[in-house]
């Protein structure tokens, strides 16, 4: 009898995806840059133990003028390098936390709607639509303005404007996956709803969620920067956006003050998007990256 198992030697999906991801040069570039930014941010308390808001030198030192302050100082004599490192901390923390919150909530709402369907689905879809029809940045500004700009409220507000994207995606995935035979089999075997959702369907819906989440981190960083630029951020913390915001009147005289944090934002967002693209290729079973 056919007890022979074809040994095609294909690794499980996750490991296969990782290998495909690591073969992608843009993924490597993106990951390396992001790792560099993350490392600097994590080491900020050791690299620049002093508060980045304290005035440490003569104002308007241009980059390269004084080797102690490689990226110069701003109009109040604050170290731009220190600001950049500490600001990266805020940008990444807000980006990651807001995405985690938004994705978690989006998964809960989207999977409930997609799995149960019917009236629950109708209700939740209306809710999603309400949030999606509101202009998201305006909503964000209003939320932060009402709730006082602290790092927590900014994070929370960004999560509130991003979850509907995730919910929509998860709902669509669940709606197709719940019709698959292996889910029917699970129901016929008497599996509970939570088990089916968590162990049968969700693992199969993860690839697109991961890809979307990576892009959402970039979006969240941009949102945080935009809020800070408008002054809607914690006044006691430096972020890339607030650095640009506070120097926007000096754009003609000291353009480096806006350009340096601007470049940091662009490069970070770009590297995250590169990672997202590579993840999409690696996790998408139809892409030629994996057989």
């Amino acid at each position: 009898m056919a007890a022979t198992v074809e040994t095609s030697g294909i690794a499980p999906v996750g490991r296969r995806a990782l290998r495909a991801f690591l073969r992608n040069p843009t993924a490597i570039v993106g990951s390396l840059f992001l790792a560099f930014v993350a490392m600097l941010s994590l080491m900020a308390p050791w690299l620049y133990p002093e508060d980045p808001l304290s005035m440490v030198a003569r104002p308007f030192l241009w980059p390269g003028q004084n080797p102690a302050f490689p990226l110069g100082t701003d109009s109040l004599g604050r170290d731009v390098t220190a600001g950049l490192v500490w600001g990266g901390r805020i940008s990444l923390a807000v980006g990651l936390a807001a995405t985690c919150l938004g994705v978690s909530f989006g998964i809960v709402v989207g999977s409930t709607a997609g799995y149960f369907g019917g009236r629950i689905d109708n209700l939740l879809v209306r809710l999603i639509e309400i949030f999606q029809t509101l202009p998201s940045f305006l909503l964000l500004v209003v939320l932060v303005a009402i709730a006082q700009p602290t790092i927590e409220t900014v994070t929370f507000a960004i999560a509130i404007v991003t979850w509907p994207t995730v919910a929509r995606l998860v709902r669509a995935e669940f709606r197709t996956l719940r019709e698959r035979d292996f889910v029917t089999a699970a129901r016929a075997l008497g599996f509970g709803h939570i088990r089916i959702v968590m162990l049968e369907i969700l693992p199969n819906a993860l690839p697109p969620i991961i890809v979307t989440a990576s892009v959402l981190v970039a979006t969240a960083i941009l949102m945080e920067s935009a809020l800070s630029f408008l002054g809607l951020s914690d006044p006691n913390l430096v972020s890339w956006g607030s650095m640009i915001g506070s120097s926007r009147e000096l754009l003609r005289s000291a353009w480096y003050l806006s350009a340096i944090p601007g470049i940091a934002i662009v490069c970070t967002v770009l590297s995250i998007n590169l990672i997202g693209d590579a993840l999409n290729d690696a996790l998408n079973p139809r892409s030629p990256g994996i057989e």
Partner: peptide
């Protein structure tokens, strides 16, 4: 219904769609 589920089962047509690819 749970004890009855144990006693009646189903085998599907599509050998590709009926097994969870992640398990």
């Amino acid at each position: 219904l749970q004890p009855l589920r144990r006693r009646m089962q189903i085998v599907f047509q599509d050998p590709f769609g009926s097994l969870n690819p992640r398990h």
